[in-house]
């Protein structure tokens, strides 16, 4: 299987599938496919009815993923201005990708979800879910805007906006916190909600929050 980036302002990915090769993606982001490519449904990981309802309705994680089985070509696009990255994960290597950024992944990868707790204050009572992918295999991910990558040393910390996190290694720990915006009650009320990312591992940030208008 091959994943090729078709560059441009709104890039897309062209997957070339051999016989019985398959990729999965979120439903509705396919750009085109050749007729011989078969479409199947792939169920997401369980966790019980309530857990599923919570992450689907609140977290925006889909009920089902779509699977494309070769041979043939299939192309995907996230319909956003940005950059695409193709990553290859080693056996048991784990990455967490921001919700809405996974373009497609080889079916040899294990799909799961990870949850980052909210700050328990109004507006951020509920945290955020990320797509977790566990190697081996290739995947393509879309960063909105430009991608800023860094490698954190053990216990090295960086603070970022919620919408800025694009992907991180599974080894990078996360913590949500409020950074007071000055002193007093006003400082607490207006505090900046941030994500603390603690190394070791790779971190990539995106310059556009996909949940904000960014035309």
């Amino acid at each position: 299987m091959d994943l090729e980036v078709v560059p441009g302002i709104v890039p897309s990915i062209l997957a070339t599938l051999g016989p019985q090769d398959s990729v999965f993606c979120e439903h509705g982001i396919m750009l085109y496919k050749e007729p011989q490519v078969r479409v199947d449904r792939k169920n997401t990981a369980g966790g019980g009815f309530l857990k599923t309802m919570e992450r689907n309705t609140v977290g925006g994680i889909p009920y089902f993923l779509t699977e494309f089985v070769g041979p043939g070509h299939v192309a995907f696009s996230r319909d956003g201005v940005g950059e695409l990255r193709v990553l290859e994960l080693a056996v048991n290597e784990e990455i967490d990708v921001a919700d809405g950024s996974l373009v497609c992944a080889e079916n040899t990868l294990r799909y799961d979800m990870s949850y980052i707790k909210g700050t328990n204050r109004p507006g951020r009572m509920i945290g955020l879910w990320m797509d977790r992918l566990i190697g081996p295999g290739k995947l393509a991910i879309h960063g909105y805007g430009n991608i800023i990558s860094m490698t954190l040393a053990p216990r090295e910390v960086v603070l970022c906006d919620f919408g800025a996190l694009f992907y991180k290694s599974g080894t990078v720990q996360t913590r949500t916190l409020n950074i007071p915006f000055g002193g007093g009650l006003l400082g607490k009320l207006e505090s900046f909600e941030a994500l603390e990312l603690i190394g070791p591992g790779k971190v990539a940030l995106q310059s556009v929050d996909p949940k904000q208008p960014h035309y």
């Binding site: 910390v157 970022c160 915006f181 002193g183």
Partner: peptide, 17 residues
């Protein structure tokens, strides 16, 4: 402007002005 920060290092101090 408040709210346009993407990321910062923990050594940077944030204040209200």
């Amino acid at each position: 402007e408040h709210g346009i920060m993407l990321y910062m290092e923990p050594t940077v101090k944030l204040q209200r002005r």
